[in-house]
Amino acid sequence: MLNLTLKVWRQKGPKDAGQMVTYPAPGISPDMSFLEMLDVVNERMMEKDEEPIAFDHDCREGICGSCGTVVNGIAHGPRSATTACQLHMRSFKDGDTITVEPWRAKPFPVLKDLIVDRSAYDRIIAAGGFVSVNTGGCPDGNSLPIPKENAELSMDAAACIGCGACAAACPNASAMLFVSAKVSQLALLPQGQPERRDRVLKMVAQMDAEGFGGCTNIGECESACPKEIKLENIARLNRDFLVATVTKRPVTASQGGGA
């Protein structure tokens, strides 16, 4: 059993000031996940009529992207390629003091305690992170052969869970890894080609409008990413952005009606 001390960011609401508060966390099993440890602490707090620590979580198997806190100064905690829900307490030692903070970025305002608003990421996808196909009338799945290597690289990028750790870990609070993952996934597939240039321009513009910082190629995002999204995706985004800027043509064709 581990006897720990937690230093947790508590903030009542979006407009309130917050502070770090210290809680003892004795008797923690090393088999617990980090979030189960928070559950235990919360249950004990509630028994003492203290409001529990609010944190986002859902699937608890590392895929939904809901959870995310900065644990001891590292987004999602010390274990690489691991979300907070999959981090287990055996990564800590008896007597440790653990600091737990929310993601910090202007586009991720704190809603309560460790919960932040990440809707900026949704809006970046809404700006261009898709292939514009309506339902129905699609060609046969095998009519479009895709080299296995491209399919694999595309899948590597598509593994992003949108948790926000990249922007949280970046000293500049830049969302480039997130944006580049979606740009890359679709740029590597033939389905993504028709909108390839527009997509990167719109997504980058939305990212900037949200107030994220710029990338200075430091690489903290890659280290923090629980899904091991690679920096090469950012290079691909930059390349696509350059090409799109240089070759961008204004749309001139008129939207004529049918006869």
Partner: peptide, 16 residues
């Protein structure tokens, strides 16, 4: 980049 993180972390450790 500075304005993108108005509230600093209590502790931040860099990995890479």
């Amino acid at each position: 980049n500075r304005s993108a993180r108005p509230v600093a972390y209590e502790s931040q450790r860099f990995v890479s």
